[in-house]
Amino acid sequence: MSKTREMTAPLLEISHLSVMLKKRRDRLKAVDDLSFKVYPGEILGLVGESGAGKSMTGSAILGLIDPPLYISSGEIIFDGNRIDQNASSIRGSKISMIFQDPLVSLNPLRKIGDQLVEAIRTHINMSKAEAFDRAKTLLAEVGIDPRRINAYPHTFSGGMRQRVVIALALAPEPSLIIADEPTTALDVSVQAQILDLLKRLCRERGTSIILITHDMGVIAETTDRVAVLYAGRLAEIGETASVLNSPRHPYTKGLVAATPRIDADSYKKKLFQIPGAMPDLEQIPQGCAFHPRCDFANAQCKIQQPPLFEDRSACWLLKDGSEIS
C-alpha cells in the first residue's frame, strides 16, 4: 500500500511550514518547520495535545490565519498549485472544513436547506431548484430524512447537526476535507457513527481527509496514516498501524501507553502518564522540544533540534538507525 502511494502525486504537500504568533516584540513559533503530504483518497490523522498546532495547521491550509498569527515561511501546494498566498480560490470548492462543535456550526436562524443551497450555489453554477434537489440528495446520503430540509438547526440533535455539517462540507464535491475534532463534542456512541459516515462518504468519492484529533482511539479506527505533533513540530509520521504498534518517538510511545484499553485485566493496571506538560509557546526548550519530559534524553537532545529520520521520526535516538528500547 505504501509503495503505490509513494508513486502517485500527493494531493496536498506541505513543506517547511511555519506559523508565527506576533506578540508585542516577540515572534513565537506556533507551527515550526512542518512538512507532510496527503495523498488522494487517504485519511491522514493529525494528533497531539491541545496547543500542539494541529488546528492551526488546518487553518493555515485554508488560509484562515488572521493576525496576530501569520505564515512566516514554507509552502503549501495543492494539486500542483501553491495556495499559501491565495487560498480563497480553493476554499470550499476544493478543500472544505468541518469544525468541532456542531451545535454552533450552523446558522441558527436559517433553515438547513437554505444553508445547503447557499453552500452549493457558491461553488456550483446551478438553479435554486436544482440546488434544492441536490441538497435533498446530500441529506439522504448523510442519513437525514430529506423531508426535513425545511427544518431549523435547533430541531436536530448534536449528531444530526454534525451530519448536516458533513453534508455542507461535501456539497461542492471537494477533494480534501479538513475535519477539526469532528466528534469531540459528541457522545461516544454517536462519535463512531459520524466517523463511519465520514469515512464511507469520502471513500466513495475518493475524497481525502485530514482528521485533527487528540483521541488515539479515533486515530486507530479511522486513519490510514498519522502525524504526531508536539509543540508545533512533527514528532513522528507513518502508517497508522505501524506508528501505533511500534512507535519510534518516545512521545508517541507515551501517547500510546497513555491510551486506556478495555481488556480483561486492564482495570488492575494504572494508566501510564507522560510526566510534565507540553511547554507554552514562550517556553519551548532548546533542542528537542520534548527532551525535558523524555526518559531517554541525552546531551545532544538538549542542544540540537532533531531532523526527521527515515521519513518517520524526529528523535536523535534514531540517528544510527537504532531502535530505542
Binding site: L62, L64, S88, I90, R91, G92, S93, S96, M97, F99, D101, V104, S105, L106, N107, P108, A119, T122, H123, V165, L168, A169, A171, P172
Partner: peptide
Amino acid sequence: DYIRLAVALG
C-alpha cells in the same frame, strides 16, 4: 463558528 465555517466553505 457558523461564520468561520461559512468562510472556510469559501
